[in-house]
């Protein structure tokens, strides 16, 4: 077999290995649902039509956009507060000691349990959703930032002092990169919490959004619509994660490259 043919075969095999199962499941769904008499099994064609609605201008604006914007707003607030607060608390010993027990407790409250109080305090509009996400998703980022700051290598501090590095330069060029890997791990979890919380909060009192659609379709027996919304949420999560990974790879390129060459972490 020629070299090109062999490479082509290798590539095809690789792709084949990755997609045979999804295709099999898809095929199974198409054929099994075609003649199904069960009401709750989504028919392939109907589901595809329902999904298509989300890709129209109107559908997108009414349902996808509110979910995404509220999710991102809450998420951004959560990580901003988490990092800034984490930097302060991580460096000020007595602050850390004072807040540690409280944080321990707060982060243990399952965020969904905060939904009722969020409704009481913030109503049922978008501000409730953003607030709930911000409050629920801040903990992973906050706590990993605190941890990271506390564990920053003292050698860095020695260098900064000996060579008279300005405070802001120390923060931007030494502390932030050093804590980067650990903070990103927290941010990833915060993203997960944010996705969960937007769906949950949209099921209460919202009039638009994907989470709302799921519940509404279920209540009005629009099975295809319900599954369509669920699939859309899955796609949204996938997209957000892909973006996160892309950002992480750029920001932490040095870390990734270094760890593939030798094992080790900058944070002692």
């Amino acid at each position: 077999m020629s070299r090109i043919a062999r490479k082509g075969l290798a590539a095809t095999t690789r792709i084949g290995v990755l997609i045979w199962l999804p295709i099999a499941i898809l095929a199974f769904w198409i054929f099994a649902s075609r003649n199904s008499s069960s009401f709750y099994v989504p028919k392939f064609d109907a589901t595809m039509v329902a999904i298509g609605k989300y890709f129209t201008m109107e559908g997108f604006q009414t349902h996808v956009l509110p979910t995404v914007t509220n999710l991102l707003a809450g998420f951004v607030v959560a990580i901003f507060v988490g990092v800034v607060l984490g930097l302060i608390i991580g460096r000020v010993r007595w602050l850390h000691d004072a807040t540690a027990p409280i944080f321990s407790f707060m982060r243990s409250i399952p965020p969904p349990a905060l939904l009722p109080i969020a409704m009481v305090l913030l109503g049922i509009g978008p501000q409730m959703r953003i607030g709930l996400i911000a409050f629920g998703a801040v903990w992973p980022t906050l706590l990993s930032t605190i941890d990271a700051v506390r564990n920053v290598d003292s050698a860095l501090g020695d260098i900064a002092r000996v060579y008279a590095i300005r405070r802001w330069r120390q923060l931007l060029h030494m502390t932030l990169p050093a804590i980067g890997p650990m903070v990103m791990a927290g941010v990833r979890t915060s993203l997960l919490y944010s996705i969960t919380l937007i769906v949950l909060s949209e099921m209460v009192g919202a009039s638009a959004g994907l989470g709302h659609s799921v519940l509404l379709s279920q209540r009005t027996f629009q099975v295809a619509d319900m599954w369509a919304a669920i699939i859309m949420l899955g796609l949204l999560g996938l997209a957000l994660n892909a973006i996160f990974v892309a950002v992480e790879n750029t920001v932490l390129r040095w870390h990734r490259q270094r760890n593939t060459e030798r094992g080790g972490s900058w944070i002692a």
């Binding site: 860095l156 260098i159 330069r169 060029h173 030494m174 980067g180 870390h255 900058w266």
Partner: peptide, 27 residues
């Protein structure tokens, strides 16, 4: 100026060699 025993901890892995050397000269 100071040179420490453990070079892995005193050089910044997120900067290039040149950037590491220039760093103390800033400001």
């Amino acid at each position: 100026g100071m040179v420490f025993q453990d070079y892995t901890r005193s050089l910044m892995p997120w900067k290039s060699v040149l950037q590491n050397v220039i760093f103390p000269l800033k400001d």
